[in-house]
């Protein structure tokens, strides 16, 4: 495992199932049993109806690029050495958007609407980070 010099997430009770699933190679999101709404990022309360009757459901892990930017300048350690890289908002099939990087893709080929699928990179023993690549 290469040394990870990018930021790592902080894991707490309400987000632990997400990170546990990522470690197993599954992308999960939340769905409220009371109002049937999906939500992302994960949280301990349904942000729509404020119920705590939330289920974790496995996402298809597929979606399309909603917006992107090729980043040429970022002074943060780990990214400064990584430019140019693609920062994107991906809209999952379930209809929620999440931030990610598009990997295994030339910066000149990335497009809004491009179909993408999740792929994981192990950052530490506890954390695997979900990225997306062209599907």
């Amino acid at each position: 495992m290469p040394e990870w010099n990018k930021p790592l997430p902080s894991v707490v009770g309400e987000t632990k199932p997400y990170w546990d699933s990522c470690r197993r190679g599954d992308l999960v999101i939340q769905k409220c049993d009371d109002c049937n709404e999906y939500q992302f990022y994960p949280r301990g309360i349904c942000s729509n109806c404020w119920s705590n009757n939330i289920q974790w459901v496995k996402s298809t892990g597929r979606g399309t690029i909603w917006a992107y930017t090729v980043t040429y300048q970022n002074r943060t350690l780990g990214f400064a050495q990584d430019v140019p890289y693609i920062l994107a908002l991906v809209e999952l099939d379930e209809g929620v958007k999440m931030f990610t990087n598009i990997v295994e893709c030339e910066t000149s080929n990335v497009q809004i609407g491009m179909p993408v699928e999740v792929t994981f990179v192990q950052a530490s023993n506890q954390i695997s980070v979900p990225y997306f690549r062209p599907a």
């Binding site: 930021p7 997430p9 309400e14 987000t15 970022n74 943060t76 350690l77 990214f79 990584d82 990087n101």
Partner: peptide, 29 residues
Amino acid sequence: TGGVARFGHPRLDPSPDSFEELYGLTTVG
């Protein structure tokens, strides 16, 4: 263009930072 931290990484808040700053967000971006 500083990103989350120019000098080493702070502990990210569980949310929303932990679902965003892993990906190299900048204000410009």
